[in-house]
């Protein structure tokens, strides 16, 4: 076993259970691969697909025409702005209800927490589709869907911040005999406000991105144009639109990131 003085440690033998788990995962992977029609050949066959030619050349005069891309893009941003305002506004009181530190009582804490968990478990575009059915096709439904989701994201992020807030100012406020809301207002809110603003800006960035795909399910904005052109197989226009969209999104994000860096 040992050579040259120092013994090389023996490699631990894998346990039977490890084999079992590995075999199980491999079997699951194999089964899943068959179910999704896994085909490695796509990776190289895709390059020879004649359809790629439909992506080129980009019709710039169509793309840069105001009513084709720019106006829906502006609508997209309006959806994102409104959803951020509504979602983040509602998130402020709900986050306080959802944090152990500031919840008015245990039932409120439990109910708000479990409702928000379920809301988050439903994928965002499912919400969009439901609301499109409820209030009709268009930007209005998109705004609602995005508001619900900004609310869910914001509440999750911000309630964690509130959880970690310094409890001492709150105790001090309570010691003066303050009622619940004023105590939170003076004891907790000032310490978490900068992070609230930073998260709100962050949610705004997310909303800008998310609003682009909303239109694919009929919830308004640039995605609607994208979907229409896709159905006409005008992939050159799709590509041109995507280029414009990502340039604009990139610029907005850089501005927002710069502001967030200064805030926190």
């Amino acid at each position: 076993m040992s050579e040259g003085g120092t013994a090389r440690p023996v490699r631990p033998r894998p346990r039977l259970r490890t084999f079992g788990i590995t075999a199980g995962l491999l079997a699951f992977t194999g089964f899943a691969a068959r179910e999704v029609e896994f085909a490695v050949s796509t990776f190289w066959e895709a390059w020879n697909n004649p359809l790629w030619e439909k992506f080129w050349p980009v019709p710039w005069d169509w793309v840069l025409d105001r009513s084709n891309v720019l106006d829906p893009l502006v609508e997209t941003f309006q959806i994102a702005i409104l959803a951020t305002i509504v979602g983040c506004g509602l998130a402020l009181p709900i986050s306080f209800a959802m944090s152990r530190l500031t919840a008015p009582n245990r039932p409120t804490y439990l109910v708000s927490r479990s409702v928000m968990n379920v809301v988050r478990a439903v994928p965002d575009l499912f919400w969009a589709k439901l609301l499109v059915t409820a209030v009709g096709i268009g930007a209005f439904a998109g705004t609602w869907a995005l508001s619900v989701f900004s609310l869910a994201v914001m509440v999750k992020l911000f309630s964690e911040t509130v959880d970690n807030a310094d409890p001492r100012p709150l105790e001090a406020a309570r010691a003066t005999g303050s009622r619940h809301l004023p105590a939170i207002r003076t004891g907790v809110l000032p310490t978490v406000l900068p992070e609230y603003v930073a998260y709100a800006l962050y949610v705004f960035e997310l909303n800008i991105r998310a609003s682009i795909v909303l239109g694919l399910v009929g919830a308004g904005g640039i995605g609607r144009v994208l979907e229409a052109q896709r159905q006409f197989f005008r992939f050159d226009r799709v590509l041109g639109m995507l280029i414009i969209v990502f340039v604009v999104v990139f610029v907005i994000e850089q501005v927002s990131v710069a502001i967030r860096k200064r805030l926190v």
Partner: peptide, 27 residues
């Protein structure tokens, strides 16, 4: 920002206030 966005999305007060009701009907 809010006002500019509201004008762009063409939402009336009536529609805005009606929406939660409509959504609730579906839910």
């Amino acid at each position: 920002g809010g006002v500019w966005s509201v004008t762009g999305i063409d939402v009336t007060l009536e529609r805005f206030l009606g929406a939660p009701g409509d959504a609730w009907d579906i839910f």
